[in-house]
Write a protein that binds this DNA or RNA. Structure first.
Lengths: 128, 128
DNA sequence: CAGTATCCTCACGGATACTG
DNA sequence: CAGTATCCGTGAGGATACTG
């Protein structure tokens, strides 16, 4: 979806491609938000849309399709009227939360250092 | 840089923004590649360009500036001729490798499941 | 060698409208 | 409700040329 699946300079082993695909997923803002929202409980399409907030219908659909394709989310359609579709994290999806949370913890832990580095860099490049 | 710094729907706490910024970094293909290449030893600009492979001069510069701004990489200029500029991971940069490697391990470990899910999804959506 | 400057493309993603 | 279809603007990023 968001990863160059095809012909990289050939030094890219299939392992690297798999890793890049996952890194791409994690780098995708919507995917991570959706996964975190689905961590607690299963949600319907519009519930998800409301909970995530700020996502367009289009991107919600596309992102969910991608997550479903990667086996991270299941999509269950109830043949009622009006239609009811529930999205739920798979075991694989749940297992992804651990390394992602580790990354989030790193971010929070080192946020002060990063912010400080930013300020330093910015004031230095200001007196160009 | 690659994160919506400004006005999200306001439900986005500053913590979330910090996490998103880091996730964005990790999702950036070039940043991760550069960090991993700098993990072993310091490298010069063109060494880095060669080692990474497939990156344009422009993106290498931009990515390095971003990494430097976040305090993940140091840029050392030697006033020689021809100029010599060395890039090195900071302690912060090194510490980022741990959670990133955890993610990479997850990717490798679950690659078969993901590939299987992909095949299943694709063949199902084929008989549309 | 280590960049900066410029141009140009195209695909990511938002907005809107329509449907089973 | 849960989508699909379409149009469209923006900007990320490659290619190329130039410079201290």
């Amino acid at each position: 979806m968001d990863v160059t699946e095809a012909d990289l300079p050939a030094h890219d082993s299939s392992d690297c491609k798999a890793v890049n695909a996952v890194l791409g997923r994690v780098g995708d803002k919507w995917s991570v938000l959706i996964i975190s929202r689905l961590g607690d409980r299963t949600l319907r399409f519009n519930e998800l849309k409301r909970e995530v907030g700020g996502i367009s219908q289009r991107m919600l659909t596309l992102t969910l399709r991608g997550l479903e394709r990667d086996g991270l989310v299941t999509r269950t359609v109830f043949a009622t009227v009006p239609p009811r579709v529930e999205y739920e994290l798979t075991a694989l999806g749940h297992s992804l939360r651990e390394p992602v949370d580790a990354l989030a913890r790193w971010a929070l832990e080192h946020q002060p250092e990063i912010a400080a580095a930013n300020r330093l860099y910015d004031q230095r490049s200001q007196r160009s």
